[in-house]
Structure formats: C-alpha cells, structure tokens
Amino acid sequence: MRPFEYRRATKPSDISAADRIIAGGTNILDLMKLEVEVPAQIIDINPLGMTEISEIDGGLRIGAMVRNTDCAADARVRRDYPLLARAILAGASPQLRNRATTGGNLCQRTRCSYFMQPEARCNKRDPGTGCDALHGVNRSHAIFGASENCIATYPGDMAVALLALGASVEILGRTGTRSVPIGDFHRLPEHQPAKDNLLEPGELISSVTLPPAMGGAQIYRKVRDRSSFAFALVSVAAAITIADGRIRHAALAFGSVAHKPWQDPAVETALVGQEPSLKLFAQAADLLVGKAKAQSGNAFKIPLLRRALIAVLSEATNTEA
C-alpha cells in the first residue's frame, strides 16, 4: 500500500477533485493494499451522516451511508421493496454488509482478476495498456455491451435490484445536486473503461431514491459457484405484477453480465399484456440472450441466463413446468 493522506470530511464541500472517498472501506482498502488503487488523498465521509432512510413522495430515500445490513433490515424496505433486501442479503457476508454502504456498494469496482493484479495489462486500471482478459481467464466476464478495450462486469447485487425497482441516484457536486436514473449511472466501457460511472472527481453520492412501491412478485435470483459468499455468475432481478390473468407490469434487470446492471426493455415489452406461460417466458429469454455475445471462456453464461430468467418468471407468476 502506498502512503497516502487521510482526512475526515466535515461537510460535503470539503471534498476536492483530488480526493478519493472512503465509506465502508471494504472495496477501496482491498484495492489499495493490492495497489490497484493508489490514491494520494483519501477523504473519509463517515462524519457526514447520510445514514437515514426516509419517506419521500410515496417512495424512499436511502442515505449514501446507510449500511447494507441496515438497509436490508429496514421494515419499509422489506415490506415494499423486498427485491432490494434480498439482493443485498445475497451479497458478500454479514461482516462485510455491516461495513458496506449504499454509496460504496454502487461504486464497487469490477472483480476481473486482471484488473485486480497490477502486473497484468488492464485498460480499466491503467488506460491504454491493453486487456489481458480478452484472451485470458474470462469465465466471469461480460456477455453484453463489452468493448475490445474491456470485457469486465459490474459485479454487485444491490444495484441490479435498484435498477429493476426504478431507483435514482442523487449526486452532490460543487455546483449542486443532480439526480440520475440508476440505469444511466453506471456506464458501458466503450473507449473509456477506466470510468465505471457518471461521477466526476469531487462528486459524492448523497442518497438513492426509490419510487412508490410497485408491489407484485419480487424475486432476486443469484446463480453462483457456491451457496454464499460468491459473486454472481449471472443474476436476475424481477418485479412482476399480474392483473386479470395477464402480466401488467414487468421490470427486469440482470447482473454480472455487463459493465453495468443490464436491462432490455424489449424483453419487458414482450411480456407485458401477455398471459404467463412457459412458452412466453422462453420467447422472452430467447429475445434477451439473442443479443448476447460470449467471450472465449464464458459461453455458458448465455444458456445460464436464459434458464435463470425462465425460472424467475415461472416462480414470479406461479407457472408450473
């Protein structure tokens, strides 16, 4: 780990463009120990509060410093947004979730092993050096939206649920506050894989807001190599409502398949207004994976995602095989 300067913020404006933020520290500290991240200045935002979950316009505002454990345990979250609670609980371990924050979780970095090994070539870590993952061990990598510069995935669970729930991210900068739909917050690698999301230097996530509860069946399905404490191979977040025997509303998001939580409006459109059936689900899943493109070592993700989506839709609609 390189020596660095450490300060504690007392107000948001203490944060300068040269600062790196530390919240729970469960990701950035690991990366600093590996020297994947080598910030010269660290600013600790724990003194800033932002630990409340409050009700707004029929929805919820979750402060950026709300710990994952507290968010998943909140009665309103569990009642109205069970998808969110389930996604959080599917991630990491109790110890990590006790530290991890809502803001930090959104900004967690990829688990691509080449990114995590400083001596490997990685455009995300060291722009312009190349991508060793492209022809290397890429079992966990992207099947959607990758570029020749980067095939890494966004690995988190919580953000996938937030995407299906239509959340927004509130960002506090020197010039004021802005709110972006979570689907726009993370970005695809394109020519700039080093940039995970829209945050500009010196900006801070202050909270995440959730629209009014949509009800219906909410499912988070995380497919993984072991039963717990493993990142998703693929994950599916679904919120489905049925009225008069037809799907009235379908919100779907997919994790660990792209550089950002993935969404495909065409799949949702194909479901809405239809009677639930295995045939319909298979069509929707085919539509989704029809656009997927495997890397050298992860072709399995395509059938896996297809089947996981079918399973989730069947479970959400009580459709028996």
Binding site: R111, S113, H135, V137, R139, R226, F229
Partner: peptide, 24 residues
Amino acid sequence: SFDLRDGRLMNHDLEQYHLPVHAD
C-alpha cells in the same frame, strides 16, 4: 485457475478460490 499464456495463477485469494462456505 491459471492463465495459459504465462502460468499465472488468477484466483489467489479466498474470495476467488472457492472453498466451501458454511452454507455449502
């Protein structure tokens, strides 16, 4: 898991090398 181009071990910690956990 090794990179076949240089024999480098890619999963060299307990997060990436999957020992069974309690839930398994």
